[in-house]
Design a binder for these strands. Structure first.
Length: 253
DNA sequence: ATGGCTTTATGCTAAAGA
């Protein structure tokens, strides 16, 4: 089973990119983040053999799950705050696997309430993932975590030191989630530096490979044992009118 | 990056992203 995740920074602007990528890679599941609008081209994906579960929001955020198999929706919001209406969390069951797509808050600037929202959102995520571990549910959670886990995951740790994506508080939340028993799929085999999933549009970040690794897959222990590979496809970042993120793909047997 | 792109919107400038 091949599961991919891609922050596409507007589905409206990137529909052709996504369609071409689906045709080329034929994943069983594709998690999308930053739809950035209420409209979603479900019919176009249906024509390629994919069903859709969509959690849209006007202008910002928005996540969707595409799958060749039936999708059972479990949660359309991250539990723990009934007042949180941002479209960032979609928990489904697909082919016997709990598949969760997320778009975690950015959190900048750190002096603002956006950073406290990010930290409390990650607290709620940890609570949810803890429950799923206690129930021994096989979990694949993927998406834009907006977390740079380690220094090796960014081009210049000094530049990122005080950023919401790399602040110690943020990385502590990441560690706490891993300590529940989840594994960073990409780092099981690949320990290389300069392995990124995002490059800023500005200042020639892409041609200079000044990127950060913030799009991740976490696997519960049983699913970790079933993992075959986890790779980042950097090709789409070099296309015309590219998203600033590129797809991550995990293969599970 | 003290913001050099890109996108969305009770739109023609502001807000958000990371």
């Amino acid at each position: 089973m091949r599961i991919a995740s891609w922050n596409i920074n507007s589905i409206k602007m990137r529909l052709e990119h996504v369609r071409n990528w689906l045709r080329q890679h034929q994943p069983d599941v594709l998690l999308l983040q930053e739809l950035k609008g209420l409209e979603f081209p479900a019919a176009e994906f249906r024509a390629l053999g994919y069903q859709s579960a969509v959690l849209p929001q006007k202008a910002y955020n928005g996540v969707a799950t595409l799958a060749r198999h039936d999708i059972k929706i479990e949660y359309e919001r991250l539990p723990g705050d009934p007042l949180d209406e941002q479209a960032r969390y979609l928990e489904t069951t697909i082919n016997g696997l709990r598949v969760i797509g997320i778009y975690a808050p950015n959190g900048n600037p750190v002096e603002s309430d956006k950073f406290s929202y990010k930290l409390s959102w990650l607290d709620r995520l940890q609570e949810r993932l803890k429950l799923l571990r206690e129930d021994e549910i096989p979990v694949v959670i993927g998406g834009d975590f907006n977390i740079i886990p380690e220094s090796v995951d960014c081009y210049d740790p000094v530049v990122w030191k005080e950023d919401a994506l790399f602040r110690l508080e943020t990385r502590k939340k990441w560690r706490s989630i891993l300590n529940l028993g989840y594994t960073d799929a990409f780092r099981i085999y690949n320990k290389q530096a300069q392995q990124y999933s995002f490059w800023d549009y500005q200042a020639g970040a892409w041609p200079q490979n000044r990127g950060i690794r913030i799009d991740h897959f976490l696997l519960s222990p049983d699913v970790t044992d079933r993992m075959v590979s986890c790779t980042i496809d950097t090709i789409p970042r070099g296309l015309e009118k590219a998203s600033d993120h590129t797809p991550v793909i995990v293969e599970i047997k």
